[in-house]
């Protein structure tokens, strides 16, 4: 298939970016989106041009590194996938494909389509962990946990921190990410010990970094590659309220 790519090029964090058009031919509809980008970059390099910088790592949908805002949607025109899991059969021959970086103040552009998502790391460092005393490995089932809670915690823990929620949200809010991280601990007895402190610190850090406020548009849930539910946001709101009044 032949495509017309409209790609955001920006040489550095402070440089002025602009769209550049790249026609590309004979792309297999069975190739992944990132493989298509690889083909483009090989062509650019062979012509002596600067290849397009974009994030990627595992290419199997679990690392959260690949990003890209493709035709108005984070991770492109499919549901519950990362960009590396997007295939060219989702596009039609001759289509113009617009590719932009995630756009949010807390995710500054490093180069072209690469953004710095260390804001998420800062939020995790603020409280997204369980403090444990060192010692022997505890027995696996020493603390009984309800199956329903174990499942909900596992669902929340599926978040790969890719930032699609922030990218999709009209307010660039990180509530889905933060709420998933708060929930995965709040649902388990091991995490309850520091639950109050955790939610307050993580919300404070999220606000401090400059993410927007949640207005319950639910675009985050619609675009999350791991289908994290907005029920986690409600849970975080409850946790936050309980922490403040207790």
């Amino acid at each position: 298939m032949d495509l017309k790519l409209k790609i955001w090029r920006q040489s550095g964090p402070d440089a002025k970016g602009e769209f550049k058009e790249y026609p590309i031919q004979d792309i297999s509809k069975d190739s992944s989106f990132l493989e298509m980008m690889d083909v483009l970059n090989e062509q650019l390099v062979s012509k002596g041009e600067e290849p397009v910088a974009f994030d990627h790592d595992c290419r199997e949908g679990i690392c959260g590194m690949c990003s890209l805002f493709i035709n108005g949607r984070p991770h492109g025109p499919d549901d519950a996938i990362t960009t590396c899991q997007l295939h060219m059969r989702k596009f039609h021959d001759g289509e113009t494909v617009t590719i932009e970086p995630w756009r949010a103040k807390p995710f500054p552009i490093i180069k072209d389509l690469m953004v710095d998502r260390s804001a998420f790391d800062e939020i995790i460092q603020a409280g997204g962990f369980v403090s444990v005393s060192t010692g022997g490995v505890p027995d696996a089932n020493a603390i009984p946990i309800k199956k329903v809670n174990a499942d909900l915690a596992m669902d929340a823990a599926a978040c790969i921190g890719c930032g699609a929620c922030v990218a999709a949200c009209k307010n660039a809010s990180a509530m889905l990410f933060v709420s998933a991280k708060v929930s995965q601990f709040a649902l388990l007895p091991q995490g309850r010990v520091e639950a109050k402190e955790r939610v307050e610190k993580m919300v404070a850090k999220m606000d401090d970094i400059g993410f927007g406020n949640c207005t319950n548009t639910y675009a985050c849930e619609a675009e999350c590659p791991k289908e994290i539910s907005v029920a986690n946001i409600a849970r975080m709101n409850r946790e936050f309220f309980a922490a403040k009044v207790s």
Binding site: W8, F19, F69, N71, G72, R73, P74, T98, E100, R103, A168, K170, T217, Y218, A219, A222, E223
Partner: peptide, 9 residues
């Protein structure tokens, strides 16, 4: 974004 966002919401 230069391309209008089209996420379901």
């Amino acid at each position: 974004y230069k391309k209008k966002a089209s996420s379901e919401q």
